[in-house]
Design a protein around this nucleic acid. Structure first.
Length: 522
RNA sequence: GUUCCCAUCGUCUAGCGGUUAGGACAUCGCCCUUUCAAGGCGGCAACACGGGUUCGAUUCCCGUUGGGAACGCCA
């Protein structure tokens, strides 16, 4: 077939690609020499997002799978920014991708490749293909193409270019029209791809059209750029979203036309929203950095994403080390999975509980200092207050982290150690103000008693309170209810005995009085 | 419209011809308990449908239905 190059064409092309590596082209930045054969035992994979928006959850999983695959096999994980769409690519998006990957702790090897910087290299390949008769100039206007597509649809055919210029003499070209370069896709036969996830997938070549390689303005399209870059980067395994499956057939023919070995493909199923439809903003399809903001831990995110479409028996909690050891493409399912926030939250709670207290403190420090500065914006020496409070948070962390599902929750639940609570009338729902005030007075008495004895441990506080309640026939829960609100400003908190010990008797008594005053005025 | 892919509890999944169809999240109940969590115990809950193949199909094949994806001078 015409599109399959002869060995001589192959070596010719490769020597050309070598000779074109002058300092002007970014191909030079890829120091790898042209290669004859791919070494699949030493995988080189890449994550290749287009910087047109944040890194969404599906992209994050693709990156994770690539990373795990590389780590498992001791290969390389490269990053390539596919910024050939100059209209939509932004620096903001590029930074978002970097930051998200860094947050997820998916470190890439080598310098990231920026695809657009390699445009001249891509264009050269397209020109070579024309010279070799494997590609051709097409002068059709967008309007004509649109017409062709609707015509094809009307005849029950796939909407495609009708190859008008494929075998036409270039001398027929209309004047003043800048042509595109189109690839001569095979007209008959079928192509089979052995996908590492999807298995053997067969597609009739009649389904393929003559894709555009080079735009009228001379810039390369995605289809050309990926193939050339993957070749130049020595990519052995292309692990990407299922939506690229049909592209694999097109790209395979391009590889063959160039005389290059086709890498292995692994197309992983897409992630869907809770309703089964494509994940969209409507479902809260957020960027990875937004999950960071909400207070998810990267290891929780990795664990969750890993289990979406991949399983290792009944294992649910899987450390990254374990994931690297176990990960294999063959265990990836072929059906799309729905994104389940509840499971992510549950996993996050697990990883928070398992986290080191000092680490958690650092994670919530910015959230707490922000809240503090908002509450007391012009307070001098606020830094001191923050540090003292943070020290208390650390002491209470064991109990705090047991209750938090996210870092945001953790920070909110810890804030009372740093900042005296403000009260609202709705907090006092279970008792009349009089009853609450009575209890607060009792509590102050108990604390005073403890203070006199110098006994302020959690245990001694508990003993004293329990004794008091027993002697007075009070239910401890009822008794403590207003105390909890007084001390924490919340109806939910860690054990009050612990809170009292950590807060210190002086601060406790002050807060009890504050709340008493508040109730009296109400 | 054409092509490709998919189909086990509500969700993520285990299963790879013979299982009381397992686990996790969610949910419900009980225990623990100063609140809330965490933890423990238990409950509810699935092989989409129809044909084959087979002694035997959740498992293999075909079809139906239902989802999804692709079909750009986007990537």
């Amino acid at each position: 077939m015409e599109h399959i190059s002869s060995p001589s064409a192959e070596s010719q092309l490769q020597s050309q690609s070598q000779s074109h590596q002058n300092p002007e082209t970014s191909a030079e930045r890829l120091t790898n020499p042209p290669h004859q054969r791919l070494d699949f035992s030493k995988p080189v994979v890449r994550f290749a997002p287009s910087p047109t928006g944040y890194l969404h959850i599906g992209g994050a999983r693709t990156a994770l799978f690539n990373w795990l695959f590389a780590k498992h096999h001791g290969g390389k994980f490269l990053l390539r920014i596919e910024d050939t769409d100059r209209e939509r690519s932004t620096d903001v998006a590029i930074n978002a991708i970097f930051e998200s990957l860094q947050w997820l702790e998916l470190k890439w090897d080598e310098e990231p490749v920026f695809q657009f910087a390699r445009a001249t290299r891509h264009a050269e390949i397209a020109q070579n293909l024309v010279k070799e008769g494997k590609a051709y100039y097409c002068y059709c206007s967008p309007e004509e193409l649109e017409q062709m597509r609707s015509d094809a649809m009307a005849h029950g055919l796939p909407p495609r270019y009708n190859r008008y210029w494929r075998d036409r003499d270039p001398s027929c070209a209309p004047a003043g029209v800048a042509p595109v370069i189109r690839f001569k896709a095979p007209l008959a036969g079928k192509t089979t791809i052995l996908d590492l996830v999807q298995g053997e997938v067969e597609l009739s070549n009649t389904q393929l059209d003559d894709m555009i390689l080079l735009r009228a303005d001379g810039t390369p399209t995605y289809m050309l750029s990926v193939v050339v870059d993957d070749y130049d980067m020595h990519i052995t395994h292309i692990i990407r979203g299922d939506d690229h499956l049909t592209n694999a057939f097109r790209q395979h023919h391009l590889y063959e036309a160039c005389g290059w070995e086709t890498p292995r493909f692994a197309h992983i199923p897409l992630i869907h929203g809770p309703d089964g439809a494509k994940l969209s903003k409507r479902h809260g399809a957020l960027g990875a950095e937004q999950y960071k903001e909400m207070g998810f831990l990267p290891e929780a995110m990795r664990n969750y994403l890993l289990r979406l479409g991949w399983a290792h028996g009944n294992d649910e909690i899987i450390s990254t080390e374990q994931a690297i050891e176990w990960f294999d493409l063959s265990a990836i399912g072929r059906s799309p999975a729905r994104f389940d926030t509840m499971k992510l939250i549950n996993l996050n709670g697990h990883y928070i509980r398992a986290s080191d207290n000092n680490r958690l403190l650092e994670e919530i420090r910015p959230r707490i200092t922000k809240t503090l500065s908002e509450a007391v914006p012009d307070q001098l020496g606020g830094g001191g207050q923050a540090e003292r409070g943070l020290a208390l948070v650390l002491r209470g962390m064991d109990s705090l982290k047991e209750r938090a599902k996210t870092l945001e929750e953790l920070a909110k639940s810890a804030i009372f150690y740093v900042l005296a609570p403000t009260y609202s009338a709705s907090d006092n729902i279970h008792a009349t103000p009089e009853e609450s005030i009575k209890n607060l007075d009792f509590c102050i008495q108990i604390i005073d008693g403890l203070h006199d004895c110098g006994q302020i441990s959690q245990n001694s506080i508990e003993t004293a309170v329990r004794g008091f309640c027993k002697d007075n026939g009070l239910k401890i829960g009822d008794f403590l209810y207003p105390v909890r609100v007084a001390l924490t400003g919340k109806k939910i908190s860690p054990s009050l005995f612990e809170v009292i010990e950590i807060l210190g008797l002086k601060e406790v008594v002050a807060r009890l009085h504050n709340y008493k005053n508040f109730l009296s005025c109400a």
